[in-house]
């Protein structure tokens, strides 16, 4: 009897000392395996006095039970310890760098243009395209800017030929008349794209930049609608309500024509972006001039509309705080990678 008890004590001590699953398995084998201690005890039973056989059998099985139970609880103990160890996060250093996945990028102009396209598409605007090499007719005459009009000066046009039959478009406005020719009124459309001005370049001027034209044609379209639409646009761009003001602006293809200023989104008392005025000149706009409606084949007595032009390059610069417009067209990876 004492033998059995000693054996049980010994087994418990061994189990308690086991540090891992492998050690537990070894103990299990040593006691309950084919050639194990318990098997040895059972094998010895026939040699015992018949009166002791029964008790010896019970004792041997009791020992087996004891060992298995001890192993079971030790196993649970070990699992809990291992989990706790993994949870302790020992050696974790939150300041270590994470590996950088390499990736490509979309041009910031693409990002901003897409946002605006999606915003306008959700309000029923078609997204249109127009050629960069444009007929003088669409760039000028159809927009109420005949030859010798002083407004041509401010266009700084790249001419393909001296008669201005073909030019590099100086604005996205040629798409206005192209849209009127193509679409059935009433309609709403925007046209983002590249435009060109023959002027010397510096950090805030480039001879190539991006604009987005907007045009809404319908019956009884008013300045009040224009203001409403522009506020929606600004909410979309800046994500919040901005105070706006309309002031007279002269563009031959609108009448009346405006400059729309918005409260500087970057300051309250003047900053370098708004040149200390707290207003930023955001978009020229106006009601479509009847001559332009006629050029697009629409009757100005029936149809009216508003148009606006948004400087996409400038907006991208404002959005990302870019200090030199020429980065946009420079193809420098050190710039592109940031987006």
């Amino acid at each position: 009897m004492t033998d059995i008890q000693t054996l049980a004590e010994k087994a418990r001590a061994e189990v308690a000392a086991a540090a891992d699953e492998e050690a537990l398995k070894a103990i299990e084998r040593a006691y309950t395996g084919k050639d194990g201690v318990v098997a040895g005890l059972l094998a010895a039973i026939p040699t015992l006095d018949p009166s002791e056989r029964r008790a010896a059998g019970i004792a041997a099985n009791g020992l087996k039970q004891t060992v298995l139970e001890a192993i079971g609880s030790r196993r649970e103990e070990l699992a809990a310890g291992a989990l706790a160890a993994r949870r302790s996060g020992e050696g974790f250093d939150p300041t270590l760098p994470a590996p950088r996945p390499s990736r490509g990028s979309l041009h910031p102009l693409t990002r901003v243009t897409r946002e605006l396209e999606d915003l306008f598409a959700s309000m029923g605007y078609e997204v249109l395209d127009g050629p960069e090499v444009e007929l003088g007719h669409y760039n000028f005459e159809a927009l109420n800017i005949p030859a010798d009009h002083p407004a041509r000066d401010s266009q700084d046009t790249f001419f393909i030929d001296p008669e201005a039959h073909l030019v590099l478009r100086t604005h996205t406005s040629p798409v206005q008349v192209r849209a009127m020719e193509r679409l059935e009124p009433p309609f709403r459309a925007i046209a983002p794209g590249k435009v060109f001005r023959q002027e010397s370049t510096d950090a805030s001027h480039d001879h190539t930049f991006y604009q987005m034209e907007g045009l809404v044609i319908g019956e009884d379209i008013s300045v009040a609608h224009l203001i409403g639409a522009m506020k929606t646009l600004l909410r979309g761009i800046f994500g919040r309500e901005l105070e706006v003001r309309l002031r007279p602006g002269y563009f031959p293809f609108v009448e009346p024509g405006f400059e729309l200023d918005a409260r500087c989104p970057f300051c309250e008392e003047g900053c370098s972006v708004c040149k200390r005025t707290t207003w930023i000149e955001l978009l020229p706009c106006g009601l479509v001039h009847p001559a332009v409606l006629r050029a697009g084949g629409l009757d100005p007595e029936r149809w009216s509309g508003f148009a606006f032009g948004l400087g996409l390059s400038r907006l991208v610069m404002l959005r990302y705080g870019i200090d030199d417009v020429r980065h946009l067209m420079g193809g420098d990876l050190r710039f592109l990678e940031q987006f």
């Binding site: 979309l106 102009l109 960069e132 590099l168 060109f196 067209m329 193809g331 592109l336 990678e337």
Partner: peptide
């Protein structure tokens, strides 16, 4: 644009005409 800038890891450029 999405496929090239995404999976293919290309960077989008806009150039002068």
């Amino acid at each position: 644009q999405d496929r090239l800038a995404g999976d293919a890891r290309f960077h989008e450029v806009k150039s002068y005409s």
